[in-house]
Design a binder for these strands. Structure first.
Lengths: 179, 179, 179, 179
DNA sequence: GATGAATGAGACTTCATTCAT
DNA sequence: AATGAATGAAGTCTCATTCAT
């Protein structure tokens, strides 16, 4: 019933990677940093991930997939659009806030921007579908909003995070109201 | 009495840096890459820029400042809002297309994201002012649009650039139409 | 569970450093030179010493501390002054001869000369104490003798080392005889 | 009657080299440092000296030769031994004090120690000759004293220079008194 | 002769990855 | 499976020297 010890270790490594990559970025973080924080030896990382790149992708995937699932769960609860919107914004902002460092790291991984592009599209698609299918213009607009919010969020320096969250939330509310 | 500093050389180095950083990112690019492409010796880079970081910042500044001036020039011409919007979109998309590699590099410079945040605000402010001052909600909305377009743009893989430009242009048109 | 730190390896590195720094000086020696002679990879030096400076200091310390202990050991044996003098000279000359290259390196480490100054004083003090405490003039004289012998020794080119040792020994004997 | 402009420049360069090498040592000093202080361009140094090494040797020679001549001049004045000794000590200490940084630099030039060895011998010889020829033991003793004083002097950190000069002078007086 | 921008070899150091234990 | 010392490729930057002006 309980996780295998190994799974636990893999999880610990991933968690550490998320934190360290989030703080220092893909290049700034060293395998030793990650190993130290995970409480394992550097060599152990290679038992679970082929190389640094794979570990990074694993970390980003972990975060994004979690977020994605959260979004789908919200839709699964089935409510009226207005309430859904509010919950989505609430959930999105909360998640992003928790993961601020990683989101910054994710954005700054030049060679992972392509992946980001696809994921933005996918997220927009899920949201659209759950709102009954948006027309072209509306869909595109929403996609741009998501990207914009994400990017602004990623570029806020930590000390200004609280204030920015407020601005973004208000804007999103108004946007969804009108749409 | 000696070889004098070559303004052209500084420009060539900056141009090379823009291209190489744009393609490979801040960490991926090496000083030798940039020197080679500029047709100078590695040591020469240090005659014009104190270190790699300074060269990177120089390249990003160069691009952004140029873009910013272009935007202000367009407003300086003074036309009716509709035409202005069209020209802005046209100019923005053209410039971005030309600089696609650098924009990617710019976005992915983790330690420059803060700068980006300020610059987005500044750009939004200029546009707002020139459209007669937007109200809070409108201003925020525009800021998010700019960030979104920029980010989506930066994350498109080169082979999909053309198609994405089309999508973005159409969306922007519709957005400005409605605003 | 892994390759454990090799005490022998640290010693080998230090020994190599003593030889290479001794021959080429602090600046003339390269980390690669030292690594090669120690039979390790350049990176390995950094497992045992934080940087080149630390390795150099380590080498100098090693030599000087060893010498100092040797001197104290001789005093510990407790004999009559005449015999002690003879043994000290014998020991000092032997040690210096073995370490000729490093002594040269030590002397020429500009930024370590201060340390040398203190060490000369310390050595003079130990000798003085063990000879029953010398009066001011005698102490100063001895300090100058030690410095003089050391410096002449360090400045002899290797091919003249044998002859110089003879000169110095004879002088020291006569000096101690008279004191 | 007046120096050629070029000689003047050569002199300025040498003077600058003495100061800069004295402060920073052979490796620590850069050709640019020396050129800057001399008020010429780096390239100009190569009109007067073939390379850095030659410039260093030139600087050391300049200092030593000057000192040597001073010593010989004092003997040329012909006085009684006691007065001569006093004047020598006075002159030696004054000169060394003025040149403290360079003496340190000189000592630390590993690959110039041999030269130093010869020069110490030469100086001892001149002094011996002018004191009517010293016997073997006395000569050797004096040589060691000179080396000792020089080395102690070179290794004093600047802030302790004054106090050390006092110690050395007193010791030298006592030594010469007794000899 | 003087200048100083340009050169480019080479140094120190980092760190992803390996592998003996 | 885990460890962590060892590896060595590769990068940034310095600086003695050259040479076009």
């Amino acid at each position: 019933m309980s996780r295998q010890p190994d799974e636990d270790k893999q999880y610990r490594i991933l968690k550490s990677a998320i934190e360290v990559f989030g703080t220092l970025g893909l290049e700034g973080a060293t395998m030793k940093d990650i190993a130290d924080r995970a409480g394992v030896a550097p060599g152990t990382l290679y038992t679970y991930f082929t190389d640094k790149e794979a570990l990074f992708v694993g970390a980003v995937d972990q975060v994004w997939d979690g977020f994605f699932e959260g979004v789908e769960a919200i839709f699964g609860e089935g409510r009226d659009p207005r309430e859904l919107s509010a919950r989505l914004i609430q959930y999105g902002m909360e998640t992003l806030t928790q993961l601020h460092p990683l989101v910054r790291g994710m954005i700054s991984a030049a060679n992972r921007l392509d992946l980001m592009h696809q994921r933005l599209d996918a997220l927009a698609l899920v949201i659209s579908k759950n709102f009954g299918g948006l027309r072209g213009t509306e869909f595109e607009s929403m996609r741009i909003w998501i990207a914009g919010v994400l990017f602004i969020f990623a570029s806020v320096p930590p000390e200004a995070l609280g204030a920015e969250i407020g601005r973004l939330k208000t804007s999103l509310m108004a946007y969804l109201e009108s749409a």
